[in-house]
Design a protein around this nucleic acid. Sequence first.
RNA 1: GGAGGUGUCGCCUAGCCCGGUUUAUGGCGCCCGCCUGCUAAGCGGGUUGAGGGUAAUCCCCUCUCGCGGGUUCAAAUCCCGCCACCUCCGCCA
Length: 423
Amino acid sequence: MIDLRVLRDNAELAREAQRRRGAPPELVDEILRADESRRSAIAAFERLRAEQKELGRQVASVSGTDKEQLLVRVREVAGQVKSAEATQAARKDDFAAVMRQLPNLASPEAPAGGEDDFVVLEHVGQPRDFAAEGFEPLDHLELGRRLQLFDVERGAKVSGARFYYLTGDGAMLELALVQLALQRAQAAGFRPMIPPALVKPRAMDGTGYLGQAAADVYYLPDDDLYLVGTSEVPLAAYHSDEILDADTLPRRYAGFSPCYRKEAGSYGKDTRGIFRVHWFDKVELFSYTTVEESYAEHQRLLQWEKDWLTDLELPFRVIDVAAGDLGLSAVRKFDCEAWIPAQGKYRELTSTSNCTEFQARRLGIRGRFEDGIRPLATLNGTACAMTRTIVAVLENHQQPDGSVSVPEVLRPYFGGRKTLDAA
RNA sequence: GGAGGUGUCGCCUAGCCCGGUUUAUGGCGCCCGCCUGCUAAGCGGGUUGAGGGUAAUCCCCUCUCGCGGGUUCAAAUCCCGCCACCUCCGCCA
């Protein structure tokens, strides 16, 4: 069951954190009230249940008129137990329902404010000066057309807007990125995983995606299954309802899966090319550790992402996402945004979140420590989201003749080729 | 999709037909002790797990026999639904 001691002890802190992310602080009070009535209902039920049990023992050991008399009393208690049990169950449900609405508490270190209040932590690499090189950069769609790397027209014909086919070297480029990302992740201690992309409601809700992000999620009503928007979901649910021994921590996984997103509310945004699509493939990093360790682990995930983008020779910046833009589950989030020349902007390529105990509580993921059993912390981070990485690689590594130079680290996957050229 | 079978405390297993001291039997493993040059063997004891109460590693309570309902004063045991696994058939990559 959910441990509320921290929330009780830090009710003021919790209210403050709620305010910071724009959620109603009354929710904290509501939760504490629901918790109280749940507790008293449970206590009442347990008292009656104990009495019933004791009477039952007596019934079993007597016979004749004594038994008949006892049974009268025992039936009465049984009735009370039944209603107390129902009350208790209802109070538990009430509590669980109100508890689910509570977002994770934003870290005090996260910048205050909303979507636009992020803080830029650093810039890595220099955007190319195309003017100095004497040519105007093409956007990824134009490059993709010339090199026949993907086909958005036929994607739309077959599946609708925001779908695409990766073709030829484009398909090979994705597989190269997958292969390299998984290899590097494995070398860094992450166990490669290919998880299911359809999950039950529990997994989706437990990771926090049925809250404010629910509109973005594909659902199959006939089967009561959701299409995941990231393999974070099956990787988090992997250890649901398990107790992991402390000496097996941290557990690190790298999942490769398709990701499905409705992109509701983004009509008209990023409609060109494959920058924003309803489906893409992604390698995702995921860690289970302790809350105390989670902050250092978060930095490690960020460092992994920075090294990856650096090795792909992409210029990028790192931002510290503001409290109001964290989503339900994260206490802190860092995004790496790569420079996209044709847009003249930095755009999100990777994102890493520390969810502390939020997902672990909802999914029943606990650790066994010397001083007892506690929820773990979960963290996730993008290793490589294929379409956006392809966009960034194409645009940043394009050459005046419309070809694209292959980053050094990817060349082994192209038989040593140094460029992608028109067929 | 169809038919049949199975699901018990870390693992194996008894109990289920015939509901009641089941706080679930036994073995393995594990822990403690004895014995023994050492080790093994042997002997004795302990050992389901989770949640909660409490200052508390004492103690107490609740839940726990795949999950959820039902019947009953009482369910591992009877009834219904669901899930997972196994075997066979069908279909299929």
